[in-house]
Every structure is written in C-alpha cells, then in structure tokens.
Design a protein around this nucleic acid. Sequence first.
DNA 1: CTCGTTCTTCATAATTTCTACACATTGAGC
DNA 2: GCTCAATGTGTAGAAATTATGAAGAACGAG
Lengths: 234, 234
Amino acid sequence: MSAKKSVLIVDDEKKIAEVMRSYFENAGYDVEIAHSGTEAINAFEHRTPSLIVLDLMMPGMSGEEVCKTIRKRSCVPIIMLTAKSEEESVLQGFGIGADDYVPKPFSPRQLLARADAVLRRASADAVPVADEISYNDGELVLDNLRHEVRKNGVNVRLTPKEYNILMTMARYPTKAFTRDELIDFALGSEFAGFDRVIDTHVKNIRQKIETDPKSPKYIITVHGLGYRFGGDIL
Amino acid sequence: MSAKKSVLIVDDEKKIAEVMRSYFENAGYDVEIAHSGTEAINAFEHRTPSLIVLDLMMPGMSGEEVCKTIRKRSCVPIIMLTAKSEEESVLQGFGIGADDYVPKPFSPRQLLARADAVLRRASADAVPVADEISYNDGELVLDNLRHEVRKNGVNVRLTPKEYNILMTMARYPTKAFTRDELIDFALGSEFAGFDRVIDTHVKNIRQKIETDPKSPKYIITVHGLGYRFGGDIL
DNA sequence: CTCGTTCTTCATAATTTCTACACATTGAGC
DNA sequence: GCTCAATGTGTAGAAATTATGAAGAACGAG
C-alpha cells in the first residue's frame, strides 16, 4: 500500500475531536483536525488526507455542504458522524456521497473498524455504494434509496434488522463477518443478547432472498466464523 | 507471540467483579482482581497482565487516576467501564489513555468482544496481517478478508482449525513451529489432547493446497521439531 | 388494552469438523 | 543395510457448529 494512513477529523466539539485524535493516532494514523466546515475545506486542500471523518451537525457550514463540496473534486473516503435521532438524515448522507456513517454516540472501536474497512475498500477496486445494486441479472436488487430489497422484481419486505444485516454484509461484498461484527454494525453496539440471533435472522433473510434456501448463493456460511455476502458467483 | 491471555479486573463491587471473572476465565483468560485503585496498581506491578478492565467510578482512587498512573509506565491495553450517564466523562476517559470504554450495564459478550478486539489490535501492530497474500504467482492465495484459501483460483475450503494452523505458520514464513506452539496459537491454549493432531491437520491442509502432497512445497516438515511454512521456494 | 409484527431464545436435527488410533512409510544414525 | 524413532495416512466415533422450527417477549399501532 501507500505511505502512512492519514485522517482529517471535522467536528466542532473540540473535546470529541481530541478524543478521536488520540484513537486514530494510536491506530497509526496521521491526524489533522478542523473545527468548522471552512476549516475543513482548507485543510483538505492542503493535506489531502486518505480519509475524512465528518460530523453532520455543525454550526455554520453543515457537514452535508462540506461533503458535497469535497465530493466535487475528490473521491476521498468520507465517514459521517450522525446523532441517533438523525437516522433519517443518515440516508441522505449516503445520497450526498458519504461512504459510511457512524451514529453518535459511537465507540472508538467501531469508528476505527469502519475507517479501516472504508480505506480497505477504497484501496482495493472500489465497490461504490450505489443507490441500487443488482445481482444475477436483476434477480436480486438491493435498493438503498427506497430502502427495500426486491427478488425478481417484487419487494421481499425485510424487517428492519434483516435489512440492516443484509446491507452491512453487502456493503463489503465477500468480507467474512463474525456474528459479533454483524451485531455491532447492524443491531447496534448496545445489543446485549446472545450472538446466535444472527443465525435466525440469516435464516429468515435466506428464506426471502434465496431461490433455494438450502443451498444459498448470496449469504454464505463461513464455518467457525460467521457469514459473508457473495460467494463464488461474485 | 505470547503465552496465555491475562486480565486484571478492577472494580469495587465484588459481585460484579466475580461475574466478570467467570466470563473471562471461560474465555481462556488468567484473571486477577483488584477492588480498589491502590490494589490495582500493586497487582499491575506484580502480574503485568495483558489487559486491564477498569471501573471508572470507585471510592478512593478513581479509575481515572489509576489509568493515568499506569499509563506513565506502560501501554498495556485498558478498557474503562462507565455508567451511562457519564458519557461526558467517558470522553475524557479517552483523553486519559483508555483504549476503549464499555458503558454499564454491559453484557459479558460485549465486554469480551471488546477485550479481544483491543488485544488483537495491540498485537496486530507487531505483525500486520495483509488482507490477501499470494504465493508462486497466484498459485496459492491466503485471503484473510474472505477468510478462505484459494489454489489456482478456487476456494479449497479449509476447516477452521486448518485455516488457523496455516495462517499461524504463514504469519512467520520459514519459522519452524513445534507442535505445541501450533496448538497454543491455532487450537487454543485450553486444548488438552495429543500433539499429533497437528500431523493430521497438516496432512489435510497439504492435500488441499499442495500440488503434490507427497513432496510438499508450502508446509515443510522439520524432522524432530515440527513444521514450517515456506521452504526453499520462498 | 388488544392485535399483529418483529425480535429473541430455546430445543433439536443436520451437518461439518476434530481427535484418536492403527498401521504404513520415511529418515537419521550406526 | 539395519534399527528405532518420527512422520504420513486412512478411518471412525466423538465433538462442535450450524440449520431449523416453534414459542414466548418485546414493541408499536390503533
């Protein structure tokens, strides 16, 4: 890979920004901080970081504007930080061009995990997060925009958790996820239950999207580890 | 690599500490417990655990002080336990040098997951593991991301233990491993069986990844000692 | 409060994987 | 070449992991 990983952190709350700084530095990143949108744009021009972590809610120029502005001239990976209540705007966040989002409050572990994942994806041949992704000649369609999944053209009506789990895996095709990772990313890190819930959700998803749930093509079991989206067909 | 994982649990509530003890022991940790800050510092000096779980709120010396004190002389991973309402102080916690925090009340699963993650991150710094390593012009590919191994492009479907053993050896190419080392690193230190299991696993791995299992190129026998990954060809 | 949906847990079945053992083969040292 | 110890290999029962169906909890809408 390239030189050192670097991140530009944009957050108006200085405390939080400093916290993030220490974590990213620990993980081996060069860290730059901006406390406002205009600062962010400036910093971006001068430093061209390999990753940007951007707070959505900021006084003055909003995260959304910053994101759009940067997207006009660069495809640098951007992770949005959003408050829980803004789940709606999260969706818009993707529309704006963010590569991932992390809801506040977040754990550093989670943020770093996603940062690494986003960078990995960016450095590999990038699989863009599209509004709509189609597999197997349209047999299966993941529609981010309408927030639904279609099998042979009909909406299969996934439940919210099923949708989250599927999209989490689909966002990083072929990556093998442990059950705990899926819980953290798709069910929320405050989930306190048994990790085998994932099995049940996967079973239900398979019933809805697989042509033959007994020999699944989309959600593949990784024995001893967990599951992954995309098997040999991808 | 290290011996057994060990954890120092610091919490003034003895009941909670004992609950954590049983979970960590189940997960294969050596557990030490301290019920106050001063006890914690003492225990740390004597035992040098590989991980510390530290309650933020304690009578007497606070978790914050303990953390700062330990940080002055060691970079051992520290996980802070914090009450939900203390989200503010949580953030400061990071500034102090904790590696992660877990809000109370927490589930054991969550705590263990983070403990493993923190330890993995700490040890991963030493020897980074690439997502994908290719040998012999792509004949053999070790794919950490997909958690699979490919021979001439096709997934050879290693079992979990086979995968662990191979990856353990591949992490240090040409290093000769004894059977006991491989058992510790790849099968888990709680394994109680016969060390010749390794032979069987190696046999099965060879059948899957070697072009001619009779004269292996990848996993080489070191007579009288054990095995190593990478022979004269590397 | 009641109903319907979704989420989670649990019991059990199906599948895969692990381990031990017996026997064959190989290699080192003499 | 001979001998002994170490390694290679096939098999089968034991153990672990995953799949599945069903039932109880939690949640929300009306």
